[in-house]
Write a protein that binds this DNA or RNA. Structure first.
Length: 207
DNA sequence: ATTGGGATAATCT
DNA sequence: GATTATCCCAATT
């Protein structure tokens, strides 16, 4: 049996049960949790989007299971990492119930630890605010790519976990429209920490 | 705040 | 074979 490698931020890794909720329920609850790696990096989740499978034309899983999206149809708590726009990786955590093809896209982090490693991974970025401000930026900063597709965030055997360090999600968050999609724009399934400087998008998109 | 270039895999016709 | 994609960056206004 492999040994669990502690991640960089103190707290309790989220359980399988925590992830086993519908994406639209899980997403706002992930705000203020911490995505952490075993190699010393950590960032607080400040922005997320839910993708709701068969009922959501913007979801990769809308048209059923394919080799690319297979992880999303698996157990909750695993990470679905996909490549897009010819150059970018984005990371989701699979939500429940298993088989529903639903997940939550992590869109932005407030960098907490491993800043030097993040800067090294994104050498052109002058401002630490922009290290993890965007779904493809945070994967670069955290060193997430296709090699992490399908890893289990609950056991954290593959070096990543989402931990609860005691900070509650913001109260009274409201969902807004998702970003970067061409269909399903009517669903208000994007949530962020109000007032956070580390949320992605333009001022208009942030509200 | 807005533009346009960048570069590729998966999926659809 | 064509299209589009859960975007980023640098350069402009």
């Amino acid at each position: 049996m492999a040994e669990r490698i502690p991640v960089a931020w103190p707290g309790k890794p989220l359980s399988r049960a925590f992830f086993n909720r519908p994406a639209t329920t899980l997403a706002p609850r992930l705000l203020n949790k911490v995505l952490a790696s075993a190699d010393g990096r950590a960032g607080r989740i400040v922005e997320v989007e839910a993708y709701a499978g068969a009922i959501d034309p913007a979801a990769h899983t809308y048209r059923g299971k394919t080799p690319r999206n297979a992880v999303m149809f698996g157990p909750p708590g695993h990470m679905y990492v996909y490549f897009t726009y010819g150059m970018h990786w984005c990371a989701n955590c699979v939500s429940g119930p298993e088989g529903s093809g639903c997940g939550v896209l992590i869109r932005a982090l407030e960098p907490l630890q491993g800043l030097a490693q993040m800067r090294a991974a994104r050498p052109r970025i002058a401002n630490d605010r922009d290290l993890c401000r965007g779904p493809a930026r945070l994967t670069q900063a955290m060193a997430i790519n296709g090699a992490q597709n399908g890893i289990d965030l609950v056991t954290s055997l593959d070096g990543f976990a989402i931990v609860d360090d005691g900070m509650a999600p913001p109260r009274n968050v409201v969902g807004g429209p998702r970003i970067g999609i061409s269909v399903g724009k009517d669903h208000p399934w994007r949530w962020s920490v109000p007032g956070s400087r580390y949320v992605s998008g333009t001022a208009a998109q942030r509200g």
